Amino acid sequence: MTKEPLLDHETSSPQPSFPSHLTKYLYSGHFLARWGARMWDFSVALYMINIWPDSLLLAAIYGVVENASTALFGPIIGKWVDRLSYVKVLRLWLVTQNFSFIVAGGTVLGLLAYPDLKSTSVEAFVLLVLVTNVSGAVGVLSTLAGAILIEREWVVVMSEGQDPTLLTRMNSVIRRIDLICKLFAPVVSGFIISFGSLKASAMTLAVLSTISVWLEYWFFMSVYQGIPALAERNRQRTRKPFPAELTESLSVPDDYHPANAEKSQKRSLGEKIANLPLVSAWRVYFEQEVVLPGIALALLYFTVLR
C-alpha cells in the first residue's frame, strides 16, 4: 500500500473557474481606492493644523464630522448598497469618493493660498471649511459603500462554488492591501509635504483622484464582466419582489372594522423612532454576542492610542 506525500495535497490547491488575472484586477482597483482614501485621511489633519496653527479646532471638527456621518448614515448606506445594482453602486461609489477628494483638495488649496482669509473674510473662510468637511463626510461614506460592495459582496460571490480556501485567501489579501495603504500612504504624503509643500500635496491628491477614478472603474468593470456569477447575483438582487407590506394591506381580515383600521394606521412616535435605520441597526448590534468586545474596542479608541 503506497502513501501519497502530504506535500502534494498541500501545494496542489484547485484553481478558481474564472481567469486569475481578474483577481489581480480586483486587488488593483481596491488598492487604488484605498490608497487615495488613506492619503487624504492623513493629509487633511496636517492641512487643518496648518490653516489654523494656533488651534486644533479645525482638525477636531473634521474628525467629528467624518465619524458622526459614518455613525448616523452608515446603516442607510448599507441598505442603499443592498437595493441598487452592482454597477450603480460601483459608479456612485467611485464618482462620489474621487469627486469629494477633488473638491476638498481645491478648497484646502484655497485656504492654504490665502492664510489671512479668516481675518479678512470670515464668511468665505467658514464656507471653505464647511465645504471641506462636507466633502470629507461624503468621501468617507462613499468609501464605506465601496468596502461593503467589494469585501462583503463581490468577494463572497466570487468564492461561491470554488475551493473553500479561496474566500480566506482573498479576504487576507484585501486586508493586507488595506494595511499596506494605511502604513505607506502617510509616508508618501509626508515625503511630498517635506520635499514640496502642503499646496503641492493637496494638488497631488486632486490630480491623483482624477486619474485613478478611470483606472479603478476599468479594473472593477473588467471583473464584473468577466465573472458571470456577479451578473447572475446582480439580477437576483435587483429583482423586485411584491412588497409584503402591500400584500398585507390588500388582504382584508375577517374582523375588519373602520375603527380598528384607524387605530392600526396611527403609529406612535416611539415605533417610528424604533424603525429608523440608525436605531434599528443599533438594536441588531446589541443583540449580537460580540457586543461587549466591540464596546471595549470602541472605548480603546477614546484613548491617546488613537
Results as ranks from 00 to 15, higher is better:
Met1Ser: 10
Lys3Ala: 13
Glu10Leu: 00
Glu10Met: 00
Ser13Val: 14
Ser13Asp: 06
Pro16Arg: 11
Pro16Ser: 09
Phe18Val: 05
His21Glu: 01
His21Leu: 05
Leu22Lys: 04
Ser28Glu: 15
Ser28Asp: 15
Trp35Arg: 12
Ala37Glu: 13
Arg38Ala: 13
Met39Val: 09
Val44Arg: 15
Tyr47Phe: 14
Tyr47Thr: 08
Trp52Asn: 13
Asp54His: 13
Asp54Met: 06
Phe73Ala: 04
Pro75Phe: 02
Ile76Leu: 11
Trp80Gln: 00
Asp82Glu: 06
Ser85Ala: 07
Tyr86Ile: 04
Leu92Lys: 06
Leu92His: 04
Leu92Tyr: 06
Leu94Gln: 01
Phe101His: 09
Gly110Cys: 05
Asp116His: 12
Ser121Gln: 13
Val122Tyr: 10
Phe125Asp: 08
Val126His: 03
Leu128Met: 08
Thr132Met: 15
Gly136Phe: 02
Ala137Phe: 08
Val138Phe: 15
Gly139His: 01
Val140Pro: 00
Val140Phe: 01
Leu144Ala: 06
Ala145His: 10
Ala147Thr: 00
Ile148Leu: 09
Leu149Met: 15
Leu149Trp: 03
Leu149Cys: 04
Ile150Cys: 08
Ile150Glu: 02
Glu153Ser: 13
Val157Gly: 06
Glu160Thr: 07
Thr165Met: 15
Leu166Pro: 05
Asp178Ile: 12
Leu179Trp: 13
Val188Asp: 03
Val188Ser: 04
Phe191Arg: 03
Phe195Arg: 15
Ser197Gln: 11
Ser201Met: 10
Met203Gln: 14
Leu208Tyr: 09
Ser209Phe: 00
Thr210Ser: 13
Tyr217Leu: 01
Tyr217Gln: 01
Trp218Ser: 15
Phe219Pro: 00
Val223Met: 03
Ala229Arg: 11
Asn234Trp: 00
Asn234Pro: 02
Thr247Leu: 03
Ser249Leu: 09
Ala261Leu: 11
Lys263Asp: 09
Ser264Glu: 15
Ser264Cys: 07
Arg267Cys: 03
Ser268Ala: 10
Leu269Arg: 10
Gly270Val: 03
Ala274Cys: 08
Pro277Asn: 10
Pro293Glu: 13
Gly294Gln: 08
Leu297Met: 09
